[in-house]
């Protein structure tokens, strides 16, 4: 249950990365979360609804892509999807500790809507 800490980190990370004037324009925040990050996406989304209220992020929504666990065997070079947390190469039986995917906990994309004022005939 560290979704609250992660939510706070989403806001802090973007505040550090983007110009403060851009924050209100953010509409979508896309996350990549590995299955090993121990994050429940629905809880994260719910927490985000509360934490964004009355902040510059109030018009933004979270989009979460969960990433399965993959590992690479250093012995035979095989990259495989890890099932049931058995980090053993299915081809050669060697233990594989080189995790290539599944540990992610990152913001992958930010979509903003920039208001551009155009003259419109009404």
């Amino acid at each position: 249950m560290h979704e609250l800490s992660i939510c706070q980190s989403i806001l802090n990370t973007i505040e550090n990365e983007l110009d403060i004037k851009e924050l209100e324009n953010i509409r979508e925040i896309h996350l990549k979360i590995g299955m090993l990050a121990c994050i429940e996406p629905e809880i994260l989304k719910n927490v985000f609804q509360f934490i964004k209220a009355d902040t510059a992020f109030q018009n933004s929504e979270l989009f979460i892509e969960m990433v399965d666990v993959s590992a690479e065997c250093k012995n035979c070079g095989n990259t495989f999807k890890v099932e049931k947390y058995i980090f053993v190469c299915p081809l050669c039986g060697e233990p594989a500790s080189n995790i290539t995917e599944g540990k992610e906990l990152l913001i992958s994309k930010i979509i903003s809507e920039e208001p551009s004022y155009a003259e419109v005939n009404e």
């Binding site: 992958s108 994309k109 930010i110 809507e113 920039e114 208001p115």
Partner: peptide, 11 residues
């Protein structure tokens, strides 16, 4: 009139 701006990041 909104223009969508997509920023691919890895944060």
């Amino acid at each position: 009139v909104g223009t969508l701006k997509v920023q691919d990041v890895s944060l």
